[in-house]
């Protein structure tokens, strides 16, 4: 979800533009799920970068102004890519998770051992969950945090929440690693 700009070794041109009405409603609907405080949306400006993918970027006013003023420039990226719009859905990216991390309660806190493993792409065992927000249900996505309150990545609950406290799930994968900050080392170098 992070680097969508090169395909088969060729760099494609990304066109930056405003969100259409439809894209805006998809985006807002998704943020309704994620955000406890939607002032975040009002305080920032978002644009679409469309190449082979439709990526949503958050950027400053000056960045957005410059894109329309100097339309002959074809940027590689602008501001911060926070996710992509695909098949009528907005999919939050790794940096998108970081961007919203202070404004969401879709959070699971994991213990120290799981923190390290999660950063190496691993899933999370039942016994490693320290806290899970009550609003989270099976198949939901959420942000994974360390006990230090550091955002670590995005996870998805694989089982019914009521089973999490059961002994037989303590050694089973209950949270799927969708993406984690280790990406910056594995792919982002």
């Amino acid at each position: 979800m992070q680097d969508k700009t090169s395909k088969g070794g060729f760099l494609m041109v990304i066109e930056f533009r405003e969100l259409t009405k439809e894209e805006e409603s998809i985006f807002k609907e998704s943020l309704d799920y994620w955000l406890t405080d939607t002032t975040l949306i009002e305080n920032f400006k978002f644009i679409i970068g469309e190449g082979n993918w439709k990526e949503v970027f958050v950027a400053t006013d000056e960045v957005i102004e410059s894109l329309s003023k100097y339309s002959q420039i074809t940027p590689y990226s602008t501001g911060l890519g926070i996710g992509e719009i695909k098949e009528g859905k907005f999919l939050l990216s790794l940096s998108g998770g970081s961007f919203i991390s202070k404004y969401t309660n879709k959070k699971v806190v994991v213990n120290k051992e799981a923190e390290q493993l999660f950063l190496y792409k691993r899933n999370i065992l039942g016994k490693s969950i320290h806290k899970i927000h009550e609003s989270i249900e099976e198949k939901d996505k959420f942000l994974v945090f360390s006990k230090n309150n550091d955002y670590l990545g995005i996870g998805q609950l694989l089982v019914d929440k009521s089973l999490l406290t059961k002994l037989e799930f303590s050694e089973k994968n209950v949270i799927k690693n969708i993406i984690d900050l280790g990406w910056y080392l594995r792919k982002g170098k």
């Binding site: 090169s6 940027p75 501001g79």
Partner: peptide
Amino acid sequence: SRERIKSLRSNLARCGVLNSVCIR
């Protein structure tokens, strides 16, 4: 550089930078 601009984007994202326009 095609390779190095990927690292640039990754570092800007890791550091939470919002005000950049990267051009290769």
